[in-house]
């Protein structure tokens, strides 16, 4: 029991915090926990959640992805051209959007693996590239997304928000099985110690590439859901999502130095972050004070995570590995 607690401590704390925030949110919301309120909340959370998952795949192998927002903007703009028309056209459009995301991820991965550029600067540069292409496609916001598919993806099934079911689906049918595969183990091995992973016969290069490709895939999914919610294409959506995705993975207990944390944690972190801002919106606090409070809560949460250091007896332990 102790072991299970210790190995999942961070995620459990994140989920408890989320539950408390959520109770607060639904009790302060003027209309209470109706399906409608739940759906809007879940939609907003899932978009950031998917961006956080994209960030998670970069962070877990000891990288960082500053192009998450740009990939979202690019896929959002492409979606606003392609996801319209007959069922077949819509399905094809979704496939193209996801393929573009994976390609962006692979470009990042190849620059990091073969170009030997540090992830933070490589993705900084590719972010500028992807954003430029997005601006080329949509210099001003516009276009439209098929309403039927948008409704299906962003409303509810028997009173449960579709996006919430989707989030649970990702954990159950993608993340938990992935953990058991060689790639799942490889992600953690490469993130913890590249050298040890290499010497254990793991193909570090392939794992990194796969990880960045998965990151691109989830950034595209985030862009896709953003499109379903807004039903329009906008190249300017990126910057906020990039920074918030980093904050979300940290809140969810993923360590930026790699190797520690889970996809579930990243998702929970994103839900916490979004719930805090929704909570503020209905709390009756002066709107002008809200950005400051959001910043304070974020800094507080992160500082509490860092407070472990004050309990360390041997000063050298704080350096980690």
């Amino acid at each position: 029991m102790g072991d299970i607690w210790r190995s999942n401590q961070r995620e459990v704390i994140a989920v408890i915090v989320l539950a408390i925030l959520l109770t607060l949110y639904f009790s302060t919301h003027p209309s209470g926990p109706t399906t409608y309120v739940m759906t809007i909340w879940a939609n907003q959370c899932l978009i950031l959640g998917l961006a956080a998952i994209a960030q998670f795949f970069a962070v877990i192998v000891r990288g960082i992805d500053l192009s998450v927002g740009a990939v979202m903007a690019l896929t959002n703009c492409i979606a606003s051209y392609l996801i319209i028309g007959t069922g077949l056209e819509v399905a094809g459009g979704i496939l193209v959007v996801l393929a573009v995301g994976i390609t962006c991820g692979l470009i990042n991965g190849m620059l990091v693996v073969f170009g030997r550029i540090q992830p933070i600067v490589a993705t900084l540069a590719t972010g500028s590239l992807f954003l430029g292409i997005a601006l080329l496609l949509r210099p001003t916001p516009g276009g439209s997304i098929d309403y039927d598919i948008s409704d299906v993806m962003t409303l509810d099934i028997f009173g449960i928000p579709t996006t919430l079911i989707f989030a649970l689906g990702i954990i159950t049918f993608f993340w938990l099985p992935l953990r058991k595969t060689g790639l799942g183990t490889g992600l953690y091995a490469v993130g913890s110690s590249e050298q040890a992973a290499y010497q254990s016969g793991i193909s570090v290069e392939k794992v990194r590439l796969a990880s960045f490709a998965l990151g691109g895939f989830f950034a595209a999914l985030a862009g896709l859901f953003f499109s379903f919610v807004t039903t329009t294409g906008d190249a300017g959506i990126g910057p906020n999502f990039t920074l918030n995705s980093i904050a979300a993975v940290v809140l969810g207990g993923v360590l930026l130095r790699g190797g520690i944390g889970t996809l579930t944690g990243a998702l929970a972190g994103a839900f916490i972050l979004k719930t805090i801002s929704s909570l503020m919106f209905f709390s009756g606090l002066p709107p002008l004070a809200q950005p400051l409070l959001e910043g304070l809560i974020l800094a507080g949460a992160i500082a509490i995570g860092g407070a472990d250091v004050l309990r360390v007896k041997n000063r050298l332990e704080v350096f980690g590995k």
């Binding site: 500028s128 590239l129 430029g132």
Partner: peptide
Amino acid sequence: AWRSIIFG
């Protein structure tokens, strides 16, 4: 758009 692309 092109500035951003060329810059990158």
